[in-house]
Computed example of a mutant assay.
Amino acid sequence: MSVAEFLPLILFVIVSTITPGGATTLATASGAHFGYRRSLPFMCGIAAGLASMAAGAAGGLGGVILALPSLQFAMKLVGTLYLLWLAWKMARSGPPRLHSDITKPTRFLGAVWLVWHNPKGWAMTLGAAASFASPAAEPLRLALTLGCSFGLAAIFSLSLWCIAGLLFARLLRTDTQWHALNALLGVLLAISIIPMWLE
């Protein structure tokens, strides 16, 4: 794949991963409540999950999932219930506890699980596999290219959202401000579920 062929892929994965959605909302909340370092396992889990999805889509796994309506529905239902539970917890939380071990951020495997149950992510990575299959010489190369591209773009994008959460942690001073922000993030997370059911 030449640089000219690689540039559209880079633009696609950056736009796909940086636009607001469930993962970016969770990264913002995690940054605000736990700081960047403690949010790293969550962000790495999202990136690894997205990278493995992209590689799987290039290898044909995404096509199998999209071809089975009952599996798609089950994934949507499980993913929706989990995201709604996270949105409820987020909306009810108070000021951040950056140095507390009582409340822990989402861990690596939880983040991977979250991404793998997102049909929107499968559709996005399958679309990338279909769109960028011709420049790749072989399926393994396409899987590696897509996996690395989505993984790196996700780390970059989630880091920006996590840092935005850190800025909120420095700007907001009162419990009322934090409750308002957490309620807003919870509502945004819940709203991010809607496009998954409209596809």
Results as ranks from 00 to 15, higher is better:
Leu158Phe: 04
Phe6His: 13
Thr80Lys: 11
Leu98Trp: 01
Gln72Asp: 01
Trp197Ala: 05
Ala143Cys: 08
Leu40Asn: 05
Ala4Val: 01
Ala164Phe: 14
Gly121Val: 02
Ala143Gly: 09
Phe132Arg: 02
Glu199Pro: 00
Leu144Val: 15
Thr17Tyr: 03
Ala137Ser: 14
Thr145Leu: 14
Ala154Phe: 01
Ala4Ile: 04
Gly31Cys: 09
Phe168Glu: 01
Trp113Ala: 13
Ala23Trp: 02
Leu140Asn: 09
Asn118Pro: 05
Pro139Met: 10
Arg170Ile: 01
Thr145Gly: 02
Phe42Lys: 03
Leu167Arg: 15
Ala55Asn: 13
Arg38Thr: 09
Asp101Thr: 01
Leu166Ser: 11
Ile14Lys: 00
Leu189Thr: 14
Ile194Met: 12
Ala67Ile: 06
Leu166Gln: 15
Thr25Met: 10
Gly60Ala: 09
Gly110Ile: 12
Gly147Leu: 08
Thr125Asp: 03
Ala190Gly: 12
Gly59Ser: 11
Leu50His: 06
Ile10Leu: 15
Trp197His: 10
Ala23Ile: 01
Ala180Val: 13
Ala180Ser: 13
Ser52Gly: 15
Tyr82Leu: 15
Pro96Cys: 05
Thr125Ser: 08
Met43Ala: 09
Leu160Lys: 06
Leu144Asn: 04
Phe168Tyr: 15
Leu68Cys: 10
Gly63Glu: 04
Ala48Gly: 12
Cys148Arg: 08
Leu11Trp: 11
Phe108Gln: 11
Ala123Gln: 13
Leu68Asp: 06
Ser159Asn: 10
Leu50Gly: 14
Leu77Ile: 11
Val64Leu: 13
Ala133Asp: 05
Met53Pro: 08
Thr176Cys: 00
His179Lys: 15
Ala55Phe: 08
Leu66Ile: 07
Ala29Asn: 12
Phe12Asn: 08
Ala48Pro: 05
Ala58Leu: 10
Pro139Val: 08
Leu188Arg: 04
Gly79Asp: 06
Ile163Glu: 07
Leu84Pro: 06
Ala4Phe: 09
Asn182Ile: 11
Ala111Asn: 09
Leu160His: 05
Ala123Arg: 14
Met196Gln: 13
Ala54Gly: 13
Gly121Trp: 02
Ala190His: 07
Thr106Arg: 07
Asp101His: 07
Gly31Tyr: 02
Gly127Glu: 03
Trp116His: 13
Thr106Pro: 05
Ile14His: 00
Leu9Phe: 02
Phe108Arg: 08
Lys89Arg: 15
Ile46Thr: 01
Ala190Pro: 12
Ile194Asn: 01
Leu71Val: 14
Phe12Ile: 00
Ser93Lys: 10
Ala87Val: 06
Glu138Met: 10
Ala58Cys: 07
Arg38Glu: 03
Ile191Gln: 00
His33Glu: 00
Trp178His: 14
Trp88Lys: 11
Ser39Cys: 06
Phe168Cys: 15
Gly22Cys: 02
Gly121Thr: 04
Leu77Val: 14
Gly31Ala: 06
Leu140Arg: 13
Arg141Val: 11
Trp197Gln: 07
Ser16Met: 11
Ser16Val: 06
Ile102Phe: 05
Ser16Thr: 14
Gly31Trp: 04
Ser159His: 04
Lys104Ser: 05
Ile18Gln: 07
Ser93Thr: 11
